[in-house]
């Protein structure tokens, strides 16, 4: 890669998410009042508006909710990765997030496919990515 990937820019709302990722934990928020779990980060429970919630680490298992295969690089850092897969992943715990699928040819990915979390380290940050689960793995 000639140019570095754009790094996530944590703000006061998303900082706990990215700090946990840097320690290789993918966390979602869970409401202490109603138990609802969600991503992306919020300052209140999006369901009951309670203010008290916890950051809970995911087990890292999920499925592909949908996927898109980029054949065009909108940023030079992604030129060498073409074609690459952007996917909406549904975690086993419920919350969904946008991520990349790695370690698989785009034509072998399908909606509903089981995937497993891994991390890509970038400087002092880490990106949560997903890889198809191997049989029995």
């Amino acid at each position: 890669m000639n140019e570095a990937r754009p790094l996530p820019a944590p703000d006061e709302v998303t900082r706990p998410f990215w700090s946990a990722c840097a320690e290789h934990r993918l966390c979602f928020q869970q409401c202490r009042a109603c138990g609802y779990r969600w991503l992306p980060a919020s300052v209140v429970c999006p369901r009951c508006w309670a203010g008290e919630c916890d950051w809970v680490p995911s087990e890292g298992e999920g499925t592909v909710f949908s996927l898109a295969v980029y054949h065009r690089a909108y940023h030079p850092a992604f030129q060498a990765l073409l074609p690459y897969v952007v996917a909406v992943i549904e975690l086993a715990e419920g919350p969904r997030l946008v991520s990349n699928l790695v370690g698989v040819q785009p034509q072998d990915v399908s909606v509903g496919m089981a995937v497993r979390l891994e991390f890509l380290d970038l400087d002092d940050r880490a990106l949560p990515l997903f890889r198809p689960r191997t049989r029995g793995g």
Binding site: L7, S66, A68, V98, S99, N100, V111
Partner: peptide, 21 residues
């Protein structure tokens, strides 16, 4: 948001997700 870190750029991206699903 932080979509750029995953190469999630442009209007075509989200609509490709919609079409694929």
């Amino acid at each position: 948001g932080d979509g750029a870190a995953f190469g999630f750029f442009g209007a075509p991206g989200i609509h490709a997700l919609a079409a694929a699903r």
